[in-house]
Every structure is written in structure tokens, then in C-alpha cells.
Design a protein around this nucleic acid. Structure first.
Lengths: 232, 232
DNA sequence: AGATTATGGATAGTGGTGCTGTCTGCTTTC
DNA sequence: GAAAGCAGACAGCACCACTATCCATAATCT
């Protein structure tokens, strides 16, 4: 197919496709003449993947480029391949400037992982990110948030099991690699959305003084009387 | 204190603080003369909150502004207050163009919520977002991802309980509102980080052919032999 | 008291991101 | 043969989150 059809099939504007080609996120089409090219289903799929990572996953274009470049070179070290997926989707948090706070929090996280019997590299970006959360929470007077994080950790273990199950199903290197990408990026978005819905549900369960499913008239005093309201 | 000290206390550059003042994210200081102002601890706290939402939570400045503006008007409808927090942190996904696919996926999500006995508004943004994930997954040939989402949902219920527990602890409207903001935004980041660590842990547990905690030399053939590798 | 430094307010500029528009010379389709 | 589509190059644009500069005034140091 030609670029126009590729555009129609995917809903991506032609100039945008050209931009992705320039950026190397989409492999060039097969040449049919010095200035004509033909595209196939693999381009449709790749383009959908790119849009999913950008729109649904919220990744910046540059991250998508790096991610796909790494995935496209399966001759490379597999650690690097899979590690890159994780690194790409954890934006390194802009150094808080509180180096000692950060270091202390990282120690706390390592202790937490020890308690759980979890093992990972000393400098995994997720560890740094989590420590950053704790530093911020502390600075905001929410030191008790650490207890919630501990509860999260137990829950997260179940997520890890579901995630690895999903990947294990897949046959072939390419399929697995794409499952890691899709599962990680779309999974993040799905989990966050489900968290919101769970909060709404839990809230209406605890504070059923207002019907679920509707917004009612103003009752600003409800908060002080009844605690948190439904989040719907 | 004056703006310079506020800057030192928080690590935010003076021009940036001025910018936040202009944008109304930080209330103006108390006037001491026509062109001098004094700031206090509340400004330090607010500034830290703003930076946490931007740096740790990854929210755009405009969202933070809206979020804080709503939180700052507690005379308003409480539904709006809490709903705004959720709406602010779920970026509305850029319409996929596949209206019918999206509608079908939303039906699927509603069915899922029904199965779980969850209740929420028909048009909650998280519902739309989750449906968007399913549409993308389907388009990428990952229709089975729905099964993983079902497993996520059960797990998310536990997160909802932890979240509401965290909020319920707080005393006073302001404290609770800030807990919702902090818990939701920092909680997202914490959960995603823990998910990564759980994936690494689960991976090393299943495929222990390489020691946890280290990157070893190239073994590109490991993948085809042994399945997914450790993600560390 | 005088010099230095900091401040509030206003306006303009910067660098990055993610496209979008326009042009040219070709090719395909009608 | 005319109209539409295409590849490739390049310029431009809108938005975002700051950052820099300037000025007149105020605070601080000596």
C-alpha cells in the first residue's frame, strides 16, 4: 500500500507518518522507484504500536524511538532489551536536590525489599523513583504514606505474577518482546484506571449516603460530617 | 521570609517562583510595602506540593493550577472537589478515531465492573481510559490482554481499600483533601515503581539462571532457551 | 549616609516537543 | 494528457515550562 492508505488505515496524518519515518520510528517502505515506496501490514502494526505508546502510554516520541530501536536489535544483550523497556517507561525524576534525603529514602526502600525477600539491582530506576516519592511525601508531612507503600508492595507482588504470566504465554522472541512493551506500557495505564474505579467503588461502599452513579446538588457540609465522599 | 529564602528552602529558582505566582498556583505573599511581600511556611508547603505534583507526579503545570484552584475553594461542591482530583490525573486520551471500537470496549468494561459488583458513573474518565487501552491492545493483536486486565481489577480492589484507609485517617477537610491529592498522584508513581520491582523479582524467581543483582556478559541465546529474562 | 544587594512587577526570549505546511520534481491513475 | 498522489527537504508553528532582562523601589551592609 502507499502512504495515503497507511494513513487511512491507522488514522495518522500523512505528514506525521513522514515525520515518524524521518525519526526512524517506522522502517522505510520498500522502494518501487527512486521516489516511491510501498508499505505493508508490518507498517500498519508498527504505526499502531507507536500511537499506542504515545497516546495510551503517554511516552514522549524520543522514548518510543529508543525503545523500538532497542527492540529491533534482538541480536543484542537480552538484559539490555528488557531493561530498556523498564527504563523507557520510568522517567528519571528531576533530581530533588535533597541528596541525603534521597539516599536515606533509598535505604528505606532497600529495607522494604529485604523484608519482602525481593531482589533487584542496587540502582534500579524504580527504586530511585520510589525513594523520590517517599522524599516528597515526607517533605509534605505525609511520612505515614510509607505504610501505604508497604501495603502497595504486597499488592504489587500479585501484579508482577500476572505480568509474567502474560509474557510467558507468548511464543517467540518477537512476540515476547512486544508483550513486554505492550504489557508494561498499556498495563500501567490500565492499572491506574482500575485504581480510580476501585477508589470510587470503595468510597461508595464506605460512604453510601449518596447514590452511586449521580452527581447531586451541593452538600459542602457532607465532608465534615461523613468523611470522604464518593469520588464518582 | 522573602522570596530568596523561599527559593533556598525549596530549591525552586526565584524566576520560577515568580512564574508560579503569576499563574496563581502560589498565593501572593503578604504585602509589607507597595512592592515588597513576605512569605511564610504555608508558601513553603504549597511550593513543595506544586513541585511534587510536577516532578514526581508528572502533571503539567496547567493541571496543577486547576487542581489547586479547586482544592482551594472548599465551599464548593465536594463531588466536584474530589472528582477534579481524579480528572486532573487521568489525561483524557486523544480520541482514537475508532468510535465504535471504543464504544464496544466501554461496554466490555462496564460488563467487567458489573461482574465485580463495582458501581461508578457511566462516563467516568477512568472507564474511558481503560476502554482505550483495550482498543489499542486489540488493534495490536493483544486481545488476550483483557484477561490480564481482569486479574488487575481484582488486585486493584485491594489498592482502593488501602487508598481509602489512608484518606480516612486524616482529620479535617484540608488534611483529607491534601491526602487525596498526595495519595492519588504520589500513589500512582509509587505503584508503578513497585510494579517494576515486582516484575524484576518475579522474573528472577521464575528464571533464576542468572544471578539477581547483576548484569552479566552477553547471552543473547538465553531468551529462546529459557523464556523471559530477569528485568533487572 | 552611601554602596551593595535583593525585590516585585512587567515583558520578552529560550529551548524543547510534536507535529504541520509548503515546495519541487517525479509517478501513478484516470 | 490532465489530475492526483508521492518522496524528500525544509521551514514554520503552537504549546509548554521556564529564564532573562529591565526598572524602580526596598532592605541590608559598612
Amino acid at each position: 500500500m502507499r502512504i495515503g492508505e497507511l494513513s487511512k488505515r491507522t488514522g495518522v496524518a500523512v505528514p506525521t507518518i513522514k515525520y515518524y519515518l524521518r525519526e526512524g520510528m517506522l522502517p522505510p517502505g520498500e522502494r518501487t522507484s527512486p521516489n516511491q515506496a510501498r508499505y505493508d501490514e508490518s507498517h500498519v502494526h508498527r504505526l499502531r504500536l507507536v500511537r499506542a505508546l504515545i497516546d495510551v502510554g503517554g511516552l514522549p516520541v524520543a522514548k518510543v524511538r529508543d525503545l523500538l530501536a532497542t527492540v529491533d536489535s534482538p541480536s543484542d544483550d537480552i538484559d539490555k532489551l528488557l531493561g530498556t523497556v523498564q527504563r523507557a517507561v520510568i522517567p528519571p525524576l528531576p533530581a530533588s536536590g535533597q541528596a541525603e534525603m534521597q539516599a536515606a529514602a533509598e535505604e528505606e526502600v532497600r529495607a522494604l525489599l529485604d523484608d519482602l525477600g525481593w531482589h533487584c539491582r542496587e540502582d534500579h530506576p524504580a527504586l530511585t523513583a520510589l525513594a523520590g516519592v517517599l522524599v516528597s511525601a515526607q517533605a509534605l508531612g505525609h511520612g505515614t504514606f510509607l505504610d501505604t507503600v508497604r501495603r502497595y508492595a504486597v499488592i504489587a507482588a500479585q501484579i508482577g505474577v500476572a505480568d509474567l504470566d502474560y509474557i510467558a504465554d507468548k511464543r517467540g522472541v518477537d512476540g515476547m518482546l512486544e508483550s513486554v512493551v505492550v504489557g508494561t506500557v498499556l498495563g500501567d495505564t490500565a492499572l491506574i484506571a482500575l485504581r480510580r474505579l476501585a477508589q470510587v467503588n470503595e468510597s461508595t461502599k464506605r460512604y453510601p449516603h449518596r447514590r452511586a452513579g449521580t452527581l447531586t446538588e451541593n452538600q459542602p457540609e457532607a465532608l465534615t460530617q461523613a468523611g470522604p465522599d464518593d469520588l464518582a
